[in-house]
């Protein structure tokens, strides 16, 4: 069976690195994509060369030029089967200069990261709710307020193991939650994908 990583390598080495409309997880389901038998190539505690983070400086053809927060540049190649996320599955055209990102893929001999997945502006923050309205949550995150926007049709709440619900009315002031969402670049604001609540 051809693994996803082999597919990415062949897409690059075979010259098939054309950009297509990125799918949620290519041809694989979201959990199945991680079920391949990968031997860990990196020592625990060490930087993972098959992972990159930073902000997009520019976009050329199918390559994102990203400046890492540690000031190291990354060339991240989006290929057939790369999944992109920005509050949900999106196409490559949604990647913009200024976006923050995390990316995982396969580091090629020339240093390019052939991306399996790119998560644009994704944040996963914990805090307590200072205030809540029908369309906003004011979250105290480590003493800093983050304004979290409810996005109709996208934002859901997960109360422990109950199914995700678009009804966020059960959330309460002072409650501790985890908010997964998409940061609005250069602001203290986030669009909500999921609010995780323990009850």
């Amino acid at each position: 069976m051809t693994s996803r990583r082999q597919m990415l390598k062949s897409a690059l080495l075979g010259g098939g690195a054309t950009v297509v409309a990125a799918t949620a997880m290519g041809s694989l389901g979201p959990e199945a994509a991680f079920a391949t038998d990968r031997a860990q190539e990196v020592d625990p505690g060490a930087p993972d060369p098959n992972f990159a983070e930073g902000r997009i400086r520019s976009i050329k053809d199918n390559t994102l030029l990203v400046l890492g927060s540690n000031l190291v540049f990354h060339n991240i190649r989006v290929v057939d089967g790369t999944s992109l996320w920005k509050l949900g599955p999106v196409g490559f055209d949604q990647a913009k200069p200024g976006d923050g990102l995390y990316a995982r893929g396969v580091r090629m001999p020339d240093g390019v990261l052939a991306a399996e997945s790119v998560w644009l502006n994704i944040v996963n923050i914990k805090g307590h709710i200072k205030n809540i309205t029908s369309d906003k949550i004011h979250l105290d995150h480590n003493g800093q307020e983050v304004l979290c926007h409810v996005v109709a049709g996208k934002s859901v709440a997960v109360h422990s193991d109950a199914p995700a619900s678009g009804d966020l009315s059960m959330l309460r002031v002072s409650q501790h939650v985890q908010i997964l969402g998409a940061w609005r670049p250069d602001t203290n604001e986030v669009d909500i994908a999921t609010v995780f609540s323990p009850h």
Binding site: W85, R104, I122
Partner: peptide
């Protein structure tokens, strides 16, 4: 960390 979590699940799953 994001590097570690993304090795076993999509970051978008969160938990």
């Amino acid at each position: 960390t994001p590097a570690a979590y993304s090795a076993i699940a999509s970051l978008s799953t969160g938990l």
